[in-house]
């Protein structure tokens, strides 16, 4: 399996926050979801992937190349979508295209026109008068029109209505028909991921908790509910995090089989959603 992006022990420190020792591999040909609470380090990680930030330690490789020596070659092959509009807001889409298109060797005007039609985008209207959804579609049309192999998106579905989110996922799935493409996107709307993501990376307080296939996640993690008296120092070891309530406990395990061995049928074992996992790994109720 070829890795499109590789983070090796990457650290970036800020005054009040840091992203520490990130080891992240992104496999070619798959959709990778990137989840974590607000301020967990998602944007910092994406910025390092785009070389908008340089790590203090460790190395970032994209397509096996280093930004220090191959910045242009790397960025030629990346399509990017950010959550906020980065395009000159006073310009219309036609002018923005005139600025962006010549930057890429493989810009495909026919493809761009096709996306503009598909997304029903006006060419002569200032981008600042676009709705959030239209701005997003415009970014997407630009990101997809130079045959990029890696599409990096920071919160692409934030602030979009469910119908457009569904539409967007359809567009992304169509891109994935080409097995050479890779999509990496951060989000906190986890239902988007359940549909199309192949791998999920989860970052919490600046540290990468896991980066696994959705199968491994659904097979390993589970939500366990039961009576509080079943918990003791020994049985607690089976859980990553436990919420004790007056009505019983709810806990997250990353080892379903050991829970089944320990508790048998005395507890309820349920499929854990990504949200359940995020919530419990973040520390659950106690820290909120």
């Amino acid at each position: 399996m070829e890795n499109v992006v590789e983070f090796n022990n990457v650290t970036k420190r800020f005054k009040d926050f840091s992203v520490k020792n990130i080891d992240l591999q992104i496999q070619r040909g798959f959709v990778h979801g990137f989840i974590g609470a607000n301020g967990a380090g998602k944007s910092t990680t994406i910025k390092m992937m785009m070389n908008l930030l340089q790590p203090d330690a460790g190395e970032v490789k994209v397509f096996g190349m280093d930004y220090k020596t191959h910045e242009k070659a790397i960025k030629e092959r990346i399509g990017f979508v950010y959550d906020a509009n980065v395009f000159f807001e006073n310009l219309n889409l036609k002018d923005i295209k005139r600025i962006v298109a010549p930057a890429y060797k493989h810009w495909d005007n026919t493809l761009f026109t096709q996306y503009v039609e598909q997304f029903e985008l006006p060419l002569n209207k200032s981008i600042k008068n676009f709705s959030k959804g239209m701005q997003m579609k415009a970014s997407l049309a630009i990101a997809l029109s130079h045959h990029a192999e890696l599409i990096i998106m920071d919160e692409p579905t934030a602030g979009l209505d469910p119908i457009f989110r569904r539409e967007l996922l359809g567009v992304l799935q169509e891109l994935m028909l080409d097995g050479n493409r890779t999509i990496f996107f951060s989000t906190h709307i986890t239902t988007d991921l359940n549909r199309i993501a192949d791998y999920i990376a989860f970052i919490n307080r600046g540290q990468l908790v896991f980066n696994d296939s959705i199968h491994d996640i659904t097979e390993n993690y589970a939500l366990v509910k039961g009576r509080t008296e079943f918990l003791d120092r020994d049985t607690e070891k089976a859980f990553v995090h436990i919420n004790r309530l007056s009505t019983g406990f709810e806990a997250l395990t990353e080892n379903v089989s050991s829970v089944k061995r320990t508790f048998g049928d005395s507890v309820v074992v349920e499929h854990a959603t990504l949200e359940d996992i995020m919530f419990h790994l973040k520390g659950g109720l106690q820290h909120v």
Binding site: M50, N51, L52, E71, K72, A73, I74, K75, E76, I78, F80, Y82, A84, N85, V86, F87, F88, V100, A103, Y104, K105
Partner: peptide, 18 residues
Amino acid sequence: AYDEKPETNILMNSLPYT
């Protein structure tokens, strides 16, 4: 004045320019 906006810098630096 246009160039110093953070969004502009993010855009220019995400395109294949050094």
